[in-house]
Amino acid sequence: MTSATGLATLVPSIAAEPPRTARFLRTAGRGLLASRLTPWLVPFALLALWAAASGTGRLSPQFLPPPWAIAEAAWSKILDGELAANIAVSFRRAISGFLVGGGIAFLLGLANGLSRLSERLTDTTVQMIRNIPNLSLIPLVILWLGIGEEAKLFLTALGVFFPVYVNTFHGVRTVDAGLVEMGRSYGMTRFELFRRVILPGALPSIFVGVRFALGVMWLTLIVAETIAASSGIGHMATEAREFLQVDVVVLAILIYAALGKVADTTVRLLERATLAWHPAFADPRTSK
């Protein structure tokens, strides 16, 4: 290892003016990289900017209410229990749509990845349906299912289905053939081959599908709740719009952002737990 002084004597121009600002920036950069708070820097800066703009009167409350007005709206909704009820309803819809659509997609993706026959039978059909924007089905779904829970479940599940299906299928198909041959040569049964080679090999791709699906899940649910619902965050926002309560509308949007973040973080944690072997997912704090 070359010491800093050794380098300095080798390169006199650096030694001539040890730039304090440069050193400060370097230390600060390292600190930023290490800190857990760093990712929150930009959101907090935006919040501060928003508060400042509202406080000085540059931002009209009719256009965007100040942060404290949103907080007040949140507080009153928390107090009358409406907020918790609506969040619970939306969350339950999101999860059930995700489980139903993602579950079917995962199984079909596996089946089509593993079996040429299954692929020949169903893949073309799936690809055809995939090209229909799922939100364009809303009028038809309302005609069929009304605005009950089934309509939301159907739309969310359909939206979640495609990313999970496509990525599961791709993941299974791109598993290293050399590893599969190795497993066969060591006498693995078909089930062992699936559990120990194919599924773990497909997992990174499946996670890509899941994260994509979470985005589609919220999007579909928001739209469905805005158009056809009598409860949930989307409904709360629509109702507030009719009464010109901008603060509640903004609150609903913020809640969607928070729920999306929660879902994404959950998947990240799952990824880190199951893909610890993968250099790209290894926790830098625990790997040597």
Partner: peptide, 25 residues
């Protein structure tokens, strides 16, 4: 038993578990 040109280790299994694959049945 066949040893390939590439190691063909399971990236998601630790070294012990990769060797254990060789126990076969």
């Amino acid at each position: 038993r066949l040893m390939f040109q590439e190691p063909r280790l399971l990236p998601w299994a630790r070294v012990v578990d990769n060797v254990a694959v060789g126990l076969g049945r």
